[in-house]
């Protein structure tokens, strides 16, 4: 079966820094895929390229059989490609509820009134109900991350790109998050998850990729990949430098 999202031969450099060097990636429908890699490896840039906020120097992005390489972000979103940002990007002057309503109404083209009910349910699911009428700018980091996820889900995505949603969470919060993500996936959403909190990732994904120097250097079963010599070398090497 054709993948739901595919990056084909993607290259991108910022000045002299190569962040993507002929990258290929295929996400099957219903799959949950994890990406790890050292800071600055180009993980977030990859999401930018997939969702239209960063233009690649070369290569193509295919979503559900359609070339979306040059499509602006809002069109990618409306097709069903949602993204959460590593640094949460709330609409800070709007309430938590309004944040989610914006995403639900504009990503799906639905009328505002028709999304109120599903948005309320979504806030409940993401543990934000008590803060529905608070200004998003006043939220704690944890709640901002929850909102980031809630807003991405409100767009009713077919593919969800998660960028470090577990960082800074306690053990318990992390477990709640993993449960939520598994739940989303069970609802038929395909997922790519970039994460440094490896144990959270391992609990939720069926395939793990390692990005280093603009290339995937490992790809396969999460537990095998995490024990592979390449991964050990990269992370140990970094530890030794620090």
């Amino acid at each position: 079966m054709a993948p739901i999202l595919a990056l084909e031969n993607i290259s991108k450099r910022f000045g002299a820094v190569v962040v993507a060097d002929g990258i290929g990636l295929a996400l099957a429908e219903g799959e949950a895929l994890g990406i790890i890699g050292p800071n600055g490896a180009g993980k977030t840039t990859l999401f930018g390229i997939a969702t239209g906020t960063v233009a690649p120097d070369a290569g193509r992005v295919i979503f559900a059989g359609q070339d979306i390489t040059r499509l602006p972000p809002e069109r990618c979103c409306r097709l069903g490609l949602a993204r959460s940002f590593q640094v949460p990007q709330p609409f800070s002057g709007m309430t938590v509820f309004e944040n989610v309503v914006v995403a639900a109404a504009f990503a799906t083209g639905a009328s505002e009134a028709s999304v109120y009910e599903p948005c309320a349910d979504l806030l409940d699911r993401c543990g934000l109900m008590a803060k529905a009428n608070q200004r998003a700018g006043g939220l704690t980091l944890l709640d901002r991350k929850r909102l980031e996820l809630a807003r991405a889900l409100a767009t009713k995505p077919r593919v969800l790109l998660l960028d470090e949603v577990a960082g800074g969470l306690t053990e318990h919060e992390c477990a709640v998050l993993v449960r939520l993500i598994k739940d989303v996936r069970a609802g038929g959403v395909s997922i790519i998850w970039i994460e440094h909190v490896v144990h959270a990732l391992l609990a939720a994904v069926d395939r793990l990729l390692v990005l280093h120097g603009g290339k995937f250097i490992a790809d396969g079963d999460p537990r095998t990949v995490i024990r592979s010599p390449q991964v050990a070398e990269i992370y140990m090497g970094i530890a030794a430098d620090a």
């Binding site: 906020t53 809002e74 940002f85 309503v101 799906t108 009328s111």
Partner: peptide, 24 residues
């Protein structure tokens, strides 16, 4: 109106507005 919702979102965060389906 609906446009106002989009406009307020753009005021707060243009990047997020685009990424959530708003034709900025």
């Amino acid at each position: 109106s609906r446009h106002g919702l989009a406009l307020t979102a753009i005021r707060d965060n243009e990047l997020a507005a685009q990424s959530n389906g708003i034709d900025v």
